[in-house]
Design a protein around this nucleic acid. Structure first.
Length: 933
RNA sequence: GGGCGGUUAGCUCAGUUGGUUAGAGUGCCACGUUGACAUCGUGGAAGUCACUGGUUCAAGUCCAGUACCGCCCACCA
């Protein structure tokens, strides 16, 4: 074994093990009635995506969970896959087209979709390959894509079912419109961002009070109403002004008419409770088709709606010839100049306000009146709220429960139609003849509110499957709705659609299932509901909440019981890591440099919720992996295979417990069990950092710093050999979920393995321990005493090479002294001491010795020929001050009658004991000070 | 505007039902390569627990208020 490098080299091992695991079917999980299921569905990354640090974190966490559960004997299934990411993928393909000077319309729908599939097939596998590099133990045979043929069946089925239950409808409302993507977006896809803008105060001339309603005579002096707006360009869509009915200033104006500047159109002044008299001038321009509030007001007052902006963000003919065709923001600037010249602009104030932005291309959203498909959410949300309330779905950390609950209670209908081509086409069919009539009606760009859509009127003749002819007019020219569904409308079905749901289609018809379908159905019944969902907070609303609703609707059961929300990956300045900011660290570069295990271990070892990353942070994981490598190398180099018995812990326990002299062995076993217990508890509660730090602490500061060091003395002993072997074996198992590759590599070198692959070995189980027999106080006291002795050495600048000639340890506890005598050789080894005496007699000690005190144990160190006492006095005085202060504190406490009578007895006794210890320490410190003065 | 979190060492964070001298990692300083590991070892310095008041024998921990920071949601143009 001495041929191993002193440095761990991940490159030589990672791909090798992944390939072998794969070949041996370690990743694949079937339904297994002898085991309990544990299932995770991956949050499917965008098919356009490449692995970033957020993915690395997200998937490392899932892999840790799944690997541990697999080792614990669960049927652990992790289903991987990707998401077709409608708008994102379409954008990518369009961008590549534009390099050839083409648009999607040049190609036509079918050819464009073909191009998109080509692209997907060529590049879509990238992220999957990268997840494999990371070591993800997904069942790769079950990889799914949201545009798979049978997945599309699930999407259609869901649409049809909701439609039948009146939970999907088509309607005309103000939606979020991205003028660049030229598509509607859901509210979640249009996040608000604070923008620094202006508040423009525009004068609207009041029409002369002639009751006949004649136009304003030229040169007549006019009165104005001043309106404050952030979006002057929408004034071409104004169909009223509104004031608050209780606003005294404007009471007389209600019902009057003003003339819309430039457009020279007359509009009424109405009153509405919605208007806040405090804001601006207290007068609002009402633009029903370009603002959601104004739309509501428009409906309340049955106003006309006028569209003045085109879908691409340019102004239309209603904006007069001057502005027709101008971009909305150019139009704003030009219009403001125009108003200034006409002296209709009173003033401009700086004003910051929140504006919706497209989450894909960050273009400013246009609130736009349009005809779209919606899902009625309130009825779906009701059960989802109840399930979480009852604790059937738990969020970790818990506070996300509230955020989920809050959103669900204020949920609004979900706009699911998108005016793009890449995605699931809406399964609604129209009759060409009937639809024609409807479209001709709506070309005017003007409507009277509210607009009610009748399906009959707009020509929808079927949802689900294409009919042969129109049932109304018999026309055989039938066409499908051109829009596709929001990507999230497919991903909200993920936890069951991946298993092949539905198993009969269309939903009304039942038929014989194929063998494949039978198996899928059995899988679904076995693995659903899944166990844990691991994701980032950004997609709680997009995905998590909606999956809960769809699971309840379509399966009648919640899709998962636990939701773990992990933090955000940031740079070391706290900024969110992103490609556009240029502060991203590429996980693949880190893997290349330090290995996947180092990447994984670094990520989960960072404390806190959000991760503040810099290249240097990955050295932590690299160092830990190297330490693991070298500790293993040392043990393996020294093992004599013929002595290794492959003990189970419980056997080794009874062997160790049999002798009083196995203090160190008892101690390390106890520490191992404590570590297992703590790691299990942390992981069950999704406290990953806590788990890794317990493991790290056990491995480095218990096993390496103490046990391996003292084992060097009697490394030939059979007990030591077996102890080292067992500790290594269990340490590897505990490390495996965090660092799968290195642990497998070392596992394979163990003289006695208990499984062909560590990834299929058993997770450590705690044996029954009689705690009383496992008290390891004397070992702890030994470590403490060696600590103060080392401290003293450093204080006197005694070279690490130089050993202490003699140390006398004094305690009045005989049993402790007996234990210490057993540990004699360890004291000598770890304290670098030549001779050590354990006694209860406080012997006179030579003048050139120094005393240290640990708890109630004293040790005299002979320093003859070693010391340089320059700073000893100063140090002693400092320590005396600390101890004195503490003695005073305890003294006061013990003098306090209230304390004595009210505090629990244990606390009082504890204080008394401490007092004794401090008094002893003080006595020794003072004696020492006197000695050197 | 509404909601949720936070403020503890230079930095990132732990800190259980109130009870030893408030901990860890990292960074910093000193010393050190004797056969696992310098990607290492040993030791050290470093904190007014944001502020104010209250409850209590006892407060980083519980309560109230203040200040500051962060996040999410939102239809005041």
């Amino acid at each position: 074994m001495d041929n191993l490098s002193t440095r761990y080299n991940p490159k030589e091992v990672e791909d090798k093990w992944f390939k072998l695991w794969s070949e041996k079917g370690c990743f694949h999980q079937e339904k297994d009635d002898t085991k309990k299921p544990y299932c995770i569905v991956i949050p499917p990354p965008n098919v356009t995506g490449i692995l970033h640090m957020g993915h690395a974190l997200n998937n490392t966490l899932q892999d840790i969970l799944i690997r541990r559960k697999r080792m614990q004997g669960y049927a652990a299934l992790w289903v991987p896959g990707t998401d077709h990411a409608g708008i994102a993928t379409q954008n990518v393909v369009e961008r590549s087209l534009s390099k050839e000077g083409k648009t999607r319309h040049d190609l036509g729908r079918d050819e464009f979709i073909e191009k998109a599939w080509d692209w997907t097939k060529a590049h879509g596998g990238t992220i999957i390959k990268q997840l494999k590099k990371l070591g993800c133990s997904c069942d790769w045979q079950r990889e799914r894509f949201t545009l798979d043929e049978d997945y599309s069946v699930a999407v259609n089925e869901a649409f049809l079912k909701l439609y039948k239950d009146d939970l999907i409808y088509k309607g005309s409302y103000i939606i979020n419109w991205c003028p660049r993507c030229q598509s509607a977006l859901s509210d979640e896809e249009a996040p608000h961002k604070e923008l620094q803008g202006n508040l423009y105060y525009i004068k609207y001339p009041i029409k002369a009070t002639s009751k006949k309603g004649k136009s304003i005579p030229e040169n007549q002096e006019l009165d104005y109403v001043v309106v404050a707006t952030t979006r002057p360009e929408t004034m071409f869509g104004d169909t009223a002004l509104a004031v608050n009915p209780d606003d005294e200033r404007y009471k007389d104006l209600i019902g009057k008419t003003v003339v819309l500047p430039i457009a020279e159109r007359e509009i009424k002044i109405i009153s509405d409770e919605f208007v806040d008299p405090e804001f601006g001038t207290g007068v609002v321009k009402v633009t029903p088709l370009h603002d959601p509030n104004d739309y509501d007001m428009g409906c309340r007052h049955k106003l006309e709606g006028i569209l003045c902006i085109n879908p691409d963000g340019t102004m239309n003919a209603n904006a007069t010839d001057v502005y027709d065709g101008l971009d909305r923001f150019e139009a704003r600037e030009a219009l403001v100049e125009d108003l200034k010249e006409r002296k209709l602009l009173k003033k401009v104030d700086a004003h910051s306000h929140a504006v919706g932005h497209c989450y894909r291309c960050h273009t400013i959203i246009e609130p736009y009146f349009s005809e779209q498909w919606f899902v009625r959410m309130k009825p779906l949300a009701k059960k989802g709220i109840e399930e979480a309330k009852r604790g059937n779905i738990k969020f970790y950390p818990q506070r996300w429960n509230k955020i989920y609950d809050n959103w669900m209670r204020n949920i609004r209908d979900w706009c699911i139609s998108r005016q793009i081509w890449w995605g699931h086409r809406i399964p609604a069919w129209y009759c060409s003849d009937c639809y024609k009539i409807y479209t001709e009606n709506k070309k005017s760009l003007k409507v009277t509110l509210p607009v009610e859509i009748s399906y009959e009127e707009i020509g929808i003749i079927a949802v689900g499957e294409k009919p042969n002819k129109c049932p109304k007019c018999g026309c055989t020219e039938i066409f499908q709705d051109p829009d596709v569904l929001d990507t999230w409308f497919s991903s909200w079905l993920w936890p069951f659609a991946i298993f092949g749901w539905p198993f009969s289609q269309p939903s009304a018809v039942s038929r014989q299932l194929s063998a494949k379908e039978k198996k899928q159905k059995a899988d679904l019944e076995y693995f659903y509901p899944t166990s844990t969902l691991v994701t980032a907070s950004e997609i709680i609303f997009f995905w998590v909440a909606r999956m809960i609703m769809s699971g309840l609707k379509f399966m009648g059961k919640i899709p998962f019981s636990d939701v773990y929300i992990h933090g955000t990956v940031r740079d070391d300045k706290g900024r969110k890591m992103s490609k556009s900011l240029g502060n991203a660290i590429d996980p693949l570069e880190i893997i290349e440099k330090h290995g996947a295990d180092a990447l994984r271990f670094s990520l989960i070892s960072l404390p806190g919720e959000d991760l503040y990353l810099a290249d240097s942070k990955f050295e932590f994981g690299r160092n830990a992996m190297n330490k693991l490598w070298n500790a293993s190398r040392f043990i393996l180099m020294n093992l004599d295979d013929s002595k290794i018995r492959n003990y189970e812990p419980k056997d080794l326990i009874s062997k160790v417990a049999a002798s009083q002299s196995n203090i160190a062995e008892k101690w390390i076993l106890f520490e191992l069990f404590e570590a297992i217990k703590a790691i299990d508890e942390s992981l069950e509660n999704y406290r990953f950092h806590e788990a890794s730090s317990k493991l790290y602490d056990f491995f480095w500061h218990k096993l390496c710093d103490w046990y391996i060091e003292l084992a060097k003395i009697n490394i030939e002993d059979e007990l030591t050999q077996n102890m080292l072997h067992l500790c290594l074996k269990y340490t590897l198992k505990l490390f495996h979920p965090f660092a799968p590759f290195i642990t497998e590599e070392i596992w394979q070198k163990l003289p006695k393995k208990d499984a062909e692959f560590i990834m299929l070995s058993e997770w450590p189980v705690l044996p029954d321990l009689d705690q009383a027999n496992w008290a390891t106080n004397s070992f702890d006291d030994m470590m403490g005493l060696i600590g103060v002795i080392r401290n003293k050495r450093a204080q006197f600048n005694i070279a690490p090479m130089a050993s202490l000639p003699r140390v006398i340890v004094i305690s009045d506890r005989e049993s402790l002294l007996d234990d210490f005598r057993v540990l004699d050789k360890y004291f000598k080894q770890l304290g670098n001491i030549e001779q050590i005496i354990f006694t209860s007699e406080d012997k006179a000690v030579s003048k050139s010795s120094s005393v240290v005190v640990y708890k109630a144990i004293k040790a005299y160190i002979l320093l003859e020929g070693l010391i340089d006492i320059d700073n000893e006095k100063e140090k002693l005085n400092k320590e005396i001050n600390v101890v004195e202060r503490e003695i005073n504190n305890i003294h006061n406490r013990l003098e306090n009658k209230a304390f004595l009578s009210k505090a629990p007895k244990e606390v009082v006794n504890q204080q008394r004991q401490r007092m004794d210890e401090y008094n002893l320490k003080m006595k020794e410190l003072k004696a020492a000070l006197k000695e050197i003065s």
